[in-house]
Write a protein that binds this DNA or RNA. Structure first.
Lengths: 250, 250
DNA sequence: CGAGCTTTTGACGGTAGTCAACTGCGGTGG
DNA sequence: CCACCGCAGTTGACTACCGTCAAAAGCTCG
């Protein structure tokens, strides 16, 4: 896959690579035309860079064109919780887009590229392209079900289940957006990030990861997630696999 | 407040009581007219009754007219996680409304009353009333930030903080929808429900509740939540208080 | 080659889960 | 009318999972 680098030119919507991702529902000609006018620019985000900060009022709305990012909240005393991961096609800053300050930060796990849209023209989108508006609501609802699962994972799964669950979640989400290969998803999460996602301490995350490795359930190294027996992993994690209709994207 | 009972007639949208709730942004004449046609009926849900079950494909879309409900997920082995609470004006089944089977159940905490809308006419709403479509997206986004907070609570707060946090959350949410009085919110949560919300065992929930009672932080009895010193409780729970613009409702 | 980060390890303590039994309460039926 | 049942709440004992602390090892980068 030819990755765009920091210096590559802005991708016109007409050539949007997301149009050809198997897990995403392509836009119509008409919709692409509109999006081309709606799109204000593009933002390159370096791996590990923070794209948005908690508390700021963002004048923009974004969607992920390339790469993987995560949303996180930090408490005043420094405790951090990663709440969600953003894959290609996901919207960023919808919450903040409704005039209130952003209640979470956004950071890139991989090198990433996001489209920038104008917030003040957002209502217009609903007026002139109801289907796109519907899709926005659809995406928001989908994020919500994703959070539901994350929450039950943190609230009700054991440490091992949680880690296996997270590996599967990322793996499958990557597969739906064309990032996951046959058995591997190339993504570099630190153990601190894993810990902050599933609500464990770093030390215990480390020990649990080792146990999972020994048990041959998942192969999670510094730079990739490997799952050799998908079915076994799903059962181990008690992953709630669901038939997904292809996602829309903006 | 005059509560409607099971036998009271269906409330026409023109007289929608939510129009006068301080925390909600009233609909315009025009919007009410549309909603009146969009509304298909009303559903009375007895206290403790399950309104929707996990796994079903719901042909409808709902919004809460009166009462408080919660959404929950259950794992195959019975572990349960309450993911969200639904107060007047909240939408129910948005996730499921997008064609996929519902991934959570919905149960009423109090006697409740919900409006029933037709799912197949949902897209039409976006076409003819963009502002309402926008509001749907807004509500979904808001639910998401609510889940964000819930997730950081379960993932990163101590048991005491979690319970105090939940009390505050319900208390304030009730206040925004006119349910909370000066110092009390009349709502009957069992300790099992509290436990399933914050990811603790029942026993430990019980002991933590007692500790909080002794410490005089919150007064949480079988049928109501009392908070005497709001500021103190907020600090204790490390509650992330945010100025909220009035919610739209559908 | 050293600074700084991530990962790893071991020891220890505390928070939270499990088990089991008992209390209290409202509802039901004999 | 009251015994009995079932459910919610409570208690204590024991266990184990997980967090904290501290230190070392491995890596990457300047």
């Amino acid at each position: 896959m030819a990755l765009k680098t920091q210096d590559s030119p802005i991708i016109p919507c007409v050539n949007c690579p997301l149009q050809h991702v198997a897990g995403l529902r392509p836009l119509t000609e008409n919709q692409i035309q509109f999006m081309a006018g709606f799109k204000q620019g593009e933002l390159y985000v370096a791996k590990g860079a923070q794209m948005l900060s908690q508390g700021v009022v963002s004048p923009h709305l974004y969607s992920v064109l390339q790469g993987v990012l995560f949303r996180f909240k930090t408490m005043e005393d420094g405790r951090r919780q990663i709440v969600n991961f953003l894959f290609p096609g996901d919207m960023v800053g919808l919450q903040g887009a409704m005039e209130d300050p952003l209640q979470h930060g956004v950071e890139a796990i991989t090198e990433a590229r996001v489209c920038i849209f104008q917030r003040e023209r957002f209502l217009e989108l609903f007026g002139t392209h109801p289907r796109l508006g519907f899709d926005v609501a659809w995406l928001a609802a989908r994020q919500e079900t994703s959070l539901d699962e994350h929450l039950t994972s943190v609230g009700r799964r054991t440490a091992r289940e949680r880690i296996a669950w997270l590996a599967l979640f990322l793996f499958l989400r990557g597969r739906a957006t064309g990032l996951t290969g046959r058995t591997y998803l190339n993504i570099a999460l630190t153990q601190a990030q894993i810990a902050d996602t599933i609500g464990l301490s770093i030390v215990h995350t480390n020990k649990t990861l080792q146990a999972l490795r020994k048990a041959n359930i998942i192969e999670w190294t510094a730079d990739r997630i490997g799952i050799h027996d998908l079915q076994a992993a799903i059962e181990y994690a008690k992953y709630d696999l669901q038939p997904e209709s292809p996602r829309p994207f903006i």
